[in-house]
Simulated scan of single mutants.
Amino acid sequence: MKRLLWLGVGLAVGAIVVRKLTQKANEFTPSGIATSLSQSAGGMVESMRSFVEDVREAAAEREDQINKAFAEGELYVNDDEDEDGRNGQEGIR
């Protein structure tokens, strides 16, 4: 009875190992590589879209600040600039 139990355990472990190895081997086939590249490219495109959206939001916010200062007749001063007007970037001109 013990031998039958261990035979069953061995078959189960063997099946799991073969399945995992087959999945890993499929990653290195041309279709597996194409799928991986497609997913990577999709992630990069989504990242770029998110970046562009963030830049647009920041630009719209800055534009609103400038328009508000102009409407009030005030001189717009960039809060991020230091006394020299360098915008916090040492040595970059």
Rank of each mutant, 00 (worst) to 15 (best):
S40Y: 01
T22E: 12
E61F: 00
F28S: 06
F70N: 02
V52F: 09
G73D: 01
D80R: 09
G85I: 04
L75Q: 12
E81A: 15
G32L: 01
R56D: 13
R86G: 09
Q89G: 08
E83M: 06
E83H: 05
D54C: 05
I66K: 00
G32M: 01
D84F: 05
F28V: 07
N26P: 05
E27T: 13
A69L: 02
S47K: 04
R56K: 13
E72Q: 12
A25D: 08
R49F: 01
I66E: 00
Q23M: 10
L37N: 12
M44H: 06
E61D: 10
N67M: 01
E46C: 00
L37E: 11
T35S: 12
D80Q: 08
P30K: 00
F28G: 02
R86Y: 10
D64L: 01
G88D: 08
R56L: 09
N67Y: 00
A60P: 05
N87Q: 13
F51I: 10
N26R: 15
D54R: 11
G32D: 02
L37I: 08
L37T: 09
A69V: 03
N87S: 14
A25L: 09
E63T: 00
G85T: 04
Q23F: 09
A25K: 08
L37F: 05
D82E: 09
M48K: 13
Q39V: 14
E72R: 07
Q89M: 15
F28H: 07
D54G: 08
F51N: 09
G32V: 03
L37R: 13
G42A: 10
A34S: 09
T35H: 07
G88F: 01
S47A: 14
M44A: 14
A59Q: 06
